[in-house]
Amino acid sequence: MPLGTLDRTPPPFFKQGPSALSKLMFFSALALFLMVADMRFRITQPVRAAVATVLYPVQWLALQPVRAVQSSGGYFTALSQAKTSEDEARAKLALQSLRAAQVEQLSLENVRLRKLLELREQKGLTGMAAEVLYDAPDPYTRKAIIDKGMVHGVVLSSPVVDESGVLGQVTRVHPLVSEVTLVVDRELAIPVLNVRTGARSVAYGEPSAFGGGLELRFMGSNSDVQPGDLLTTSGVDGVYPAGLPVAKVDKIERRAESAFARIFCTPQALVASAFHVMVVAPVSTQIPPRPADEPAPVPVKKGGHK
């Protein structure tokens, strides 16, 4: 076959159509036209809406793993924040409870101090304020330790009172602290006066009676004593100033076989919960000294001079 009769065109499988440059120019012009047309006439808005509607389920499904991860992370973050907030709230609640307790304690102390000052003004007492540190560890006695001692001017046998009445008496003095024997101790006795009748007697500590009280001893069975009678210091012992509340009569036992009645009393002072007290100078130290005796006059002898 002669060479001139051969078909020199490529087979259909290898046909390339327009050139790449022609395609680039055509599609660039088409894109530019579409952009201008869309900007001016919004011709692609329905197409975009249709495409967005069709792709929305696909987008929703694709976003679910991301939202699940974000939700789990947000849950743990919120849980951690809630735990932190709860701990902070509990700490604030504990602090507020502590402050509320302190406020109540301070209010109670304020009321007691005011009453103590009023008692001092009413009775004209001279003394010093003290604070109860602790109770004596001896289980067989009723004593307390205060924070004033010899260097502060506390002397032996000084009466100790609180805002309600006589608390006890100083029985031992150290340089910085002192020991106070309470009125309910069995070794302490206080001369008292019945305010209603004016009868004098002696109140003894009786710690076994009603868990801590006093007893009027050597009172006749026919004595004029009634429950509720107020007993105050009589002032005849030279230790306690007169008129300080000591106790109230609580119970009276009169027996036919005994000439004396058993009279139990409740102390007026806060024996078990006293905190602020006043140490009063004994009455004997406030009494002016006895004047010196004047020399006896020399008797004049009768008769003339020699």
Rank of each mutant, 00 (worst) to 15 (best):
V177H: 13
G205R: 03
P207I: 03
L176C: 12
V151G: 08
E179R: 08
D162N: 08
V160E: 14
K148T: 03
S157G: 12
V154K: 09
A203V: 11
V173P: 05
S158C: 03
E187K: 08
P207S: 07
S157N: 15
D135K: 10
V180Y: 15
R142E: 12
R196N: 12
K148Y: 07
M150H: 08
Q169S: 02
V173D: 03
T181L: 11
G168K: 00
V192E: 01
I190L: 09
F210N: 03
G205I: 03
L167M: 10
V151I: 14
R172E: 15
P137E: 01
V183D: 09
G211M: 04
S178Y: 00
G205N: 00
N194C: 10
L156G: 01
T181D: 05
V183H: 12
V161M: 04
D147Q: 09
D138I: 08
A203D: 02
T197G: 02
R172N: 12
D162S: 02
Y140K: 11
L176E: 12
K148Q: 13
V154M: 09
L167N: 06
L188P: 02
S208C: 11
Y204T: 12
V161G: 04
S208K: 05
V170I: 15
D162M: 14
A189W: 10
G168A: 00
T141M: 01
R196K: 13
G212M: 09
H152G: 07
I190M: 04
D135E: 13
G153S: 10
S164W: 14
S208M: 10
R196T: 15
K148I: 15
P137Y: 01
V151N: 13
D162Q: 01
L156V: 05
V154G: 05
V177I: 15
H174R: 14
G212Y: 14
K143E: 08
I146Q: 02
R196D: 09
E206C: 06
P175N: 12
L182A: 07
P175D: 11
D162L: 02
R200I: 12
D135Y: 14
A199I: 11
K143G: 12
R142P: 14
F210E: 04
T171G: 09
H174M: 15
D185P: 01
V155C: 12
G198F: 07
E206F: 06
A136I: 10
S208E: 04
E163N: 14
T197I: 00
A199R: 14
V166K: 03
V173Y: 07
L167A: 15
G149L: 09
L167K: 07
V180C: 11
V155A: 05
A189Q: 08
D162I: 12
V160A: 00
P175W: 13
E187Y: 14
G213W: 10
V180P: 06
A203W: 06
G213H: 04
Y204A: 11
E206R: 08
V180I: 11
S178R: 00
G165K: 06
V195R: 13
L188G: 04
K148R: 08
G168I: 00
T141A: 05
I145F: 15
S158P: 12
S158A: 08
D138L: 05
